[in-house]
Design a protein around this nucleic acid. Sequence first.
DNA 1: AGCTGGCACTCGCACGATGTGAGTGCCAGG
DNA 2: CCTGGCACTCACATCGTGCGAGTGCCAGCT
Lengths: 340, 340
Amino acid sequence: MLDDRKLDVLKAIVTDYVSSKEPVGSKSLVERHGLRVSPATVRNDMAVLEEEGYIVQPHTSAGRIPTDKGYRLFVDRLATVKPLSPAERRAISTFLAGAIDLDDVMGRTVRLLAQVTSQVAIVQYPAAPAAQIRHVELVGLTTDRALVVLITSSGTVEQRTLELPHVSDDHIAQLRALLNSHLIGIAPSAAVDRLAALATDLDLALRPIGTPVIAVLLDMLASDASDRVVVGGVPNLARFGDQFETTVRPVLEALEENVVLLRLLGEAASSVDGEVTVRIGHENPYETLQTTSLVASSYGTVSDGRATLGIVGPTRMDYPSTMASVRAVARYVGRFLAEG
Amino acid sequence: MLDDRKLDVLKAIVTDYVSSKEPVGSKSLVERHGLRVSPATVRNDMAVLEEEGYIVQPHTSAGRIPTDKGYRLFVDRLATVKPLSPAERRAISTFLAGAIDLDDVMGRTVRLLAQVTSQVAIVQYPAAPAAQIRHVELVGLTTDRALVVLITSSGTVEQRTLELPHVSDDHIAQLRALLNSHLIGIAPSAAVDRLAALATDLDLALRPIGTPVIAVLLDMLASDASDRVVVGGVPNLARFGDQFETTVRPVLEALEENVVLLRLLGEAASSVDGEVTVRIGHENPYETLQTTSLVASSYGTVSDGRATLGIVGPTRMDYPSTMASVRAVARYVGRFLAEG
DNA sequence: AGCTGGCACTCGCACGATGTGAGTGCCAGG
DNA sequence: CCTGGCACTCACATCGTGCGAGTGCCAGCT
């Protein structure tokens, strides 16, 4: 149906439209690319491409612009991965040096991704399901409040404050020792059972403080770090001031809905493992984002923590470069997390 | 110079312009407010107000709009604090219930503030200079990496990972005990001296791991939690799609510069203590934000942690309501932090 | 002295007509 | 199957026009 030349034409249309932001006509197409045919021929090809739904003309007597379907074909079959510039390579390989903790790594990653793609970046916290519990810390803060800190072998530190009746330092120390002796070195899933058992045959003296603390710990074990996301590069939206309704507003609205972002990333990552996934326009599961595209990739390994990162931007974006950048950042962050 | 009626006229102009977004003329002014004079009289007053720089007309035959100076006079002398609606009161007083930790409190606060003001909200983490050190935790993660956690009496938990040579669990335990015995219960400022002393006469066996750990601890003590800010309500910018250049773009650009936000809040809060501060247009220290206004207030107490929160929006905003909301949120968060 | 009604004037803006040009579809010939 | 030619279409920019909201000023009234 679509011979090579027609594919070339589509590729040229996408490329030109992405860079010029304007509908592209047959004449300029032939000029700017080395197509060895006449505009009239190209016009015939374009008519076919339009019939097949890969391109449309915004109005009669205007050039063509790619449809979501056109971008999809472009991404699947026509895009050649654009190698990163040396400056980008350098930026990526130095950006994470000196990161202090996981929060810092996530923050740096999202800024890096936003910078190299010039889009809005989203990074999900890695989930390390195989982590062991390293330490449970219990600290009295005031007479009736305490702080629970849970430290895992993957280096995550989670904290909660809770109210306790009659906190005596001695009881706290006992409970801390008890918890640690039962929990250290075991996996969170096993810890849940262990804690439940512990709660029932708890020393009577410890029960008043032990019960709420165990409840909080169970809650902490249930909550997954990977339901956290960080967002960056929002100022990059300023470049799209002209397409306020189709790009800026939907992204702004989605950004503060963590749930939306998580499902977006999750859905995108679930398809192909370790490769860059692209969701173009209407392919997105969320209606408000159907005028935008998502480029995402999972990163990390199951043992060191695995999650997804990506960018959101207008459907008219430079897919080859963006995909290359997202892939490079994902790989680098994965490597960085593995090395530590 | 400005008699009561001229002030009334200015007040009416500000009120009308804020709600209608359109230059306001003498006739509609007289109609919509109970001014007991004729449009001609109002026109004379407006001429004077314009001469004094409180209002301008965008073009010769249009109504007047307030200048920054006009808004300033309005805020200082004319605005009557608009009482909060019952719904707002309810929202404010329930929003923080069930907060899990400080991060959660900050996150909820920024969302609350963004919601009640319908603007972009900024909340600075509270600084609790008088906090005591409650606990130092040191956990080996892999053979050559360890995690340092610093817990203070104000409930803040700070964590860092670092690389260590030859980590033996025994040495780690020794060092942990040593650090805690020296640090627990003392203020961060004193801890700095104590750590420096500790570093010099450290047991030779502990020195290889003790030195880097102490360095990290000193760094953690030096870093202040109050240099963290959270931002929320960015989607509210979508309402200002028409004023993209004067409102959306500047705010977007400022948002990701934590330094800018911190200086902005710091400068605003430093003026009057515990009251709402307003920076209108050119009064802002940052050029890019000179088409926007900042409404801020400090919150909390020195002992429980003190910081600043506020909102950024267009100069044409409903100052009375916004100021009331900011003040209410600041007070409520302060109270919440004090109660725990 | 201050307020008011009247009046001429200004000028941004919405509206409609016009012309231009980029781009198209189609067709006959190579 | 490609190509040059040609008639056709329309979005858009340009220009002119009329309207009306709003103004400044002035003479007269209180």
